[in-house]
Write a protein that binds this DNA or RNA. Sequence first.
DNA 1: TTAAGACTAGTTGTAGGACAACTATTGACT
DNA 2: AGTCAATAGTTGTCCTACAACTAGTCTTAA
Lengths: 245, 245
Amino acid sequence: MNTSAEQFGGRASLTRRISDDIRRRILAKEWSPGAKIHSESELSATYKVSRVTVRTALKTLEYQGLVDIRHGSGTYVNDFGRSIPTGLNELRSMSETISELGYDPGMEYKMADIRPATKIEIEKLQLDAPDPVLYLERAVLADGKAVAFSYDTINISSLPEDVVEQMKKGSVFASLDTINSRPIRSLAEVDAVIDKQIGWGEERPTNDLFLLLQQIHYAGDGEPMMYSKTYFMEGRFQFLILRTR
Amino acid sequence: MNTSAEQFGGRASLTRRISDDIRRRILAKEWSPGAKIHSESELSATYKVSRVTVRTALKTLEYQGLVDIRHGSGTYVNDFGRSIPTGLNELRSMSETISELGYDPGMEYKMADIRPATKIEIEKLQLDAPDPVLYLERAVLADGKAVAFSYDTINISSLPEDVVEQMKKGSVFASLDTINSRPIRSLAEVDAVIDKQIGWGEERPTNDLFLLLQQIHYAGDGEPMMYSKTYFMEGRFQFLILRTR
DNA sequence: TTAAGACTAGTTGTAGGACAACTATTGACT
DNA sequence: AGTCAATAGTTGTCCTACAACTAGTCTTAA
């Protein structure tokens, strides 16, 4: 029961830890879809936490679409198969998403450069001047095959130098984890584009058709950390969104 | 404090009603972005409900991305401008979304037909046989201008005849509201497509490029109610997704 | 003067117990 | 066989209390 505790050095809230653990148990098929999970009282007893904490945790899972809480009856596992956990609503890195889908994630670095921010980047990252930023061009791989091309700009003004160096080679999110400052929120815009300039290599689509996910990642204090444009090759990736009332 | 109470005849939970009201107040700019809203104790006093109820309501808004709850400090209105309330995370009808964006919504009916379900529709709506379904082809209008083309299939097996008749002319969601059975959840898939067959009229894009939102709407009991494919003309609509941890 | 540290009021997080509201099942009765 | 009442179980809301945390104010020492 420490998925997030490991990532945050035990600083995650109790509710968060319980929620993560129940989520893990659901994804591990401890209860089959449609089944009723243990009552709030039972869970609070086994986890040795108050019912308030369990309730809050379950509410989170309900927002995420994993369970359905029915007044007077119980809490039931939703029957959306493997779809939801790989949806776009929860903020995860590309690598994490790909590995949750059951593939072997990878990144092919084409460019990793520190240079002054462009006008657009200044605007998106809410900078005051053309400060130096880290610019990356990469292909996103699943089982060694390219599924998307990613163009990322990272605000490095408040990052230690060694972390920045690490980003030039390894996963951005993993590097940010080491100093415990992963973004907590992102606002993404989705577009369909035809662009001859995007991508490279043999696997690039011949019809120049991409699904563009353009997003700004925000830190806990609300500051923009990263502006990224990811061009997905149509058909190699399934974009799912859960919409709730 | 009765946005949802009106829709559901007062059957919505207390938490839901409080949450809706605070949401309304935030969108009405009662507090400016970044500002701290009243404390949980204050809110529970003014609404005359327990702090637990207020907390649950605020948690909902936090998940929707409207506020940021900080331990030991307070609850702050997020600074995402008008973007979030028009996002895709919350399930709303096209008309509602368009009108929240500040445009005048409309629908142009091209076809409204009751016919047996096709193979794909049987699968998507989880039917056992080619039962009769309501099939609609419509253009979605904003300020009289087409922004998308919608192809919808509705499972009418458990719907009264007059409601079905109503759907042939007016808004589907509004018709469902009259018998209090609007879908509570939808699973949407997003794709970029090039298709010469889609759409009609002068405003149709010449490059055949669309953003396809393919979704299945589910009722409260988990039954699929409606399978719809909406083809958005690129550039006339902004798709936003809020992603959180 | 300045900077570090102790103190404090205010706020969110968690606890425990109680009862209300609702659901699904059982059993009695017609 | 069908209807209704009773009942046990579950989630929704309430109350009170305290722990954990934050952002200031104030004190103190360099």
